[in-house]
Design a protein around this nucleic acid. Structure first.
Lengths: 125, 125
DNA sequence: AGGGGTATGTTACAGATGTAGCGAACCTGT
DNA sequence: ACAGGTTCGCTACATCTGTAACATACCCCT
């Protein structure tokens, strides 16, 4: 799994929140802080489809996008990469460190914990 | 502070360990896992000098490089960026999560903790 | 039928990163 | 004085990321 870039993370967060959105909707939700042109938003989404980070569905002629992977799956991957890369750690960080994240409810946190505890990266699936 | 890229982190780790090294020496220490050409190692080091990540000193005609920032300074920055970017967290992660890192002795860990606890990013200094 | 708005695919371009080669200058042993 | 090894500064080039425009095709209203 190619990791999402920072901008791509922003898009993913929106999709995790809202489920499935058209490009226009994604753009609207990102509105304030990102300040991209609509074109930019669309380019990001396309690249994410290529990377397999989001899936594209055609709803009555309109393209609608949804996350291809769960929050926990992506985040656990990011955490693993980070701790290996930066700290040479291969034992996982405790999921509890991320409680407090506005992205995660209790279920998400539990799932993240499970994924972080599993030995070894997830390989392909 | 521009964050070090993954490859640059590898170089920094070597320098934190060994103190100050010539390009040739850095290359030798990285030997196994990285498998770069010597040219690549040198390019990385140069870019890191430009970024202010390492300093260059001239020792009897030979260029010798040393880390420009402490382990704790760099790592705390990385942790902050990561937790903000990925988890929308602005409260800091607990330094204790990184005990166990082969990079950190107790002093490093204490320093890291201090830096992580400080409110707000470090600005310029 | 024509005009206005929207979606989609395609293309562009700069900067960062990974990766590496080239030529000039230099030291050192023969 | 020269060959061989090494350093150093420069250049190159592909890929990824950030950022965006353009040209079509399509739909709806007047």
């Amino acid at each position: 799994m190619q990791p999402p870039s920072p901008s791509e993370m922003a898009v993913l967060k929106t999709l995790w929140n809202e489920g499935a959105l058209s490009a226009r909707e994604v753009h609207a939700r990102l509105g304030g802080p990102q300040d991209w042109s609509y074109s930019t938003t669309r380019t990001l989404i396309s690249r994410m489809v290529e990377k397999g980070l989001v899936s594209r569905r055609d709803s009555h002629g309109l393209a609608v996008f949804a996350p291809a992977l769960s929050k926990a799956a992506v985040l656990s991957g990011m955490v693993r990469r980070f701790s290996a890369q930066v700290f040479d750690l291969d034992a996982p960080l405790p999921a509890s460190a991320f409680a407090g994240s506005p992205l995660l409810d209790d279920d998400d946190l539990a799932e993240l914990e499970t994924l972080l505890e599993q030995e070894g990266g997830e390989e392909e699936n």
